[in-house]
Design a protein around this nucleic acid. Structure first.
Length: 313
DNA sequence: CGATTTTGACCAGCGC
DNA sequence: GCGCTGGTCAAAATCG
């Protein structure tokens, strides 16, 4: 929850020591190319250019890190404000809500950012099977969609099977219940429902973790447990229904009492969007796939740049 | 024809 | 115990 949980140090694989090998490798490659072109370029000159480029990238990395730190600080302060708001509203909500205790426990964990519900027995299914302690990682994904799009489809790279649909009391939009197509070997379930406050937002609640890779790697990865995902995020065009997506992982209720019940239903749409914006950097920096892809993209640009320079010389 | 979706019925938790 | 509610089941319908 704390911003300290967020590693603001973007490892872009461009630190000098790490990059040194690439530089040396590039040196040998360019020497080969130079030989092929039958043009002799002083190695020291190229070395200087590369070092200069490396310094430039390092300074960019530093700037990005600073920007990220500022973003995280802003996020932290906003989160504190949000928690205050939630605790104020929870008193009124508790009087009118008839939610199940178990569900309240689930949503007590909402707007957490680094924990894993599975470490205790207070997770989603424990009320059904009190003797079992099922590990169920719960996370909420908000997907911005076209309000005229009535489908309840959240493309997250996995294949789902719908097994039910209900209209819930506190939301006029139907809620779809889906299981991973690999069930029962994969226990992951998800619920998809439009936000009552903002119909352009689709709320997908994931329960559990996938124990397999994506079914369709060509689709955009929005999975809450990126550790189970295959490598880098695909580059296919965004789907019509997913213009922007943010994942909120849920955390342990430690330090949070019942006064945080169902905060998502107590905040208005602008607050949600603010939270989502603040959530993005934390989610992105936690996502190894994202940082790896970013590093690959940057290093790719550097390589291209160097190759162009080599060709010029 | 197998996989998926739809949809009404059923079950279980919770508050009164 | 009863009613309300969310979640799940399973048969029928639909799709590719």
């Amino acid at each position: 929850m704390e911003s300290s949980c967020v590693d603001t140090n973007l490892d872009l694989n461009i630190n000098p020591f790490h990059h040194r090998n690439k530089v040396l490798k590039r040196e040998s490659e360019s020497q080969r190319e130079v030989a092929d072109c039958d043009v002799k370029v002083p190695v020291k000159q190229e070395n200087g250019v590369l070092v200069e480029e490396l310094n430039r990238i390092s300074s960019e990395n530093k700037k990005l890190t600073e920007m990220l730190t500022v973003l995280c600080e802003q996020y932290n302060s906003l989160q504190n404000q949000f928690m205050e708001l939630v605790s104020k509203n929870s008193g009124n909500e508790a009087a009118t809500s008839r939610k199940r205790k178990a569900e309240c426990e689930d949503y007590t964990n909402m707007i957490g950012f680094s924990g894993n519900v599975g470490s205790t027995c207070s997770d989603a299914e424990s009320y059904k099977k009190p003797k079992e302690c099922i590990k169920a990682k719960i996370s909420i994904v908000y997907v911005h969609i076209n309000p005229s799009d009535n489908s309840l489809i959240v493309r997250d790279g996995y294949q789902w099977r719908k097994y039910g649909q209900k209209v819930t009391r506190d939301n006029p939009f139907p809620r779809a219940y889906l299981k991973c197509s690999f069930a029962p070997s994969c226990p992951v379930k998800k619920k998809v429902q439009r936000s009552a406050e903002d119909p352009s937002i689709l709320v997908a609640t994931y329960e559990g973790e996938h124990n397999h890779a994506h079914h369709s790697p060509a689709e955009l990865s929005l999975s809450p447990n990126s550790s189970a995902n295959p490598r880098s995020a695909p580059v296919s065009a965004p789907t019509k229904s997913s213009a922007a997506t943010v994942t909120l992982e849920l955390m342990q209720p430690s330090g949070l009492g019942d006064d945080t019940k169902k905060p998502s239903q107590q905040i208005d749409a602008p607050a949600i969007q603010q939270i989502l914006v603040q959530q993005m950097p934390a989610s992105l920096t936690r996502d190894l796939n994202f940082t790896a892809a970013l590093a690959a993209a940057i290093s790719g640009r550097v390589v291209d740049h160097n190759e162009r320079e080599c060709q010029v010389m």
